[in-house]
Simulated scan of single mutants.
Amino acid sequence: MQIQGKAKFDARVFLTEQMTRTQGLKLKRLSDEAYQPTQYDRHLSFAEAARRIQVLEAEIELANSF
């Protein structure tokens, strides 16, 4: 039995799909907060934006722990 409406995952689409507006706003805010404006680029893929957001959040958390 197959569930209808469930999209099949395609890694190529995931890696090339443009970041969402929400990701862009969050990445811009985090890059400003971390004093790393070069981390923001409006032409990033969804996956690269997610990776940069994760890295910046970890860096900010580390800096706030001191």
Rank of each mutant, 00 (worst) to 15 (best):
Q2W: 00
I3Y: 07
I3A: 12
Q4F: 10
Q4E: 15
G5M: 00
K6L: 14
K6T: 11
A7Y: 09
A7I: 06
F9Y: 12
F9R: 08
D10I: 05
D10A: 05
D10P: 05
R12N: 12
R12V: 10
V13P: 10
V13Y: 09
F14T: 04
F14Q: 07
F14Y: 15
L15F: 15
L15N: 15
T16I: 03
T16A: 11
T16C: 06
M19F: 05
T20R: 01
T20Y: 01
T22I: 07
Q23Y: 05
Q23K: 01
G24Y: 05
G24S: 11
G24Q: 09
G24F: 05
L25Y: 11
L27W: 01
L27G: 03
K28D: 13
K28N: 12
R29T: 14
R29S: 12
L30S: 10
L30E: 10
L30K: 06
L30R: 06
S31D: 04
D32L: 13
D32F: 15
D32S: 14
E33H: 12
E33Q: 14
E33M: 11
A34Y: 04
Q36N: 09
Q36G: 09
Q36T: 11
P37F: 00
P37Y: 00
T38Q: 15
Q39M: 15
Q39F: 15
Y40Q: 02
Y40C: 00
Y40R: 02
D41T: 02
D41N: 08
H43R: 12
L44Q: 01
S45Y: 04
F46Q: 04
F46I: 00
A47W: 12
A47I: 05
A47T: 08
A47S: 12
E48H: 06
A49Q: 02
A50S: 10
R51M: 07
I53M: 03
I53H: 02
Q54C: 02
Q54L: 03
Q54N: 13
V55A: 08
L56E: 01
L56Y: 00
E57C: 00
A58M: 05
A58C: 01
E59S: 09
I60A: 01
E61W: 03
L62V: 09
L62W: 12
A63E: 09
A63N: 06
N64A: 11
N64G: 07
N64Y: 04
N64W: 04
S65R: 08
S65Q: 07
S65L: 10
S65V: 05
F66I: 09
F66E: 10
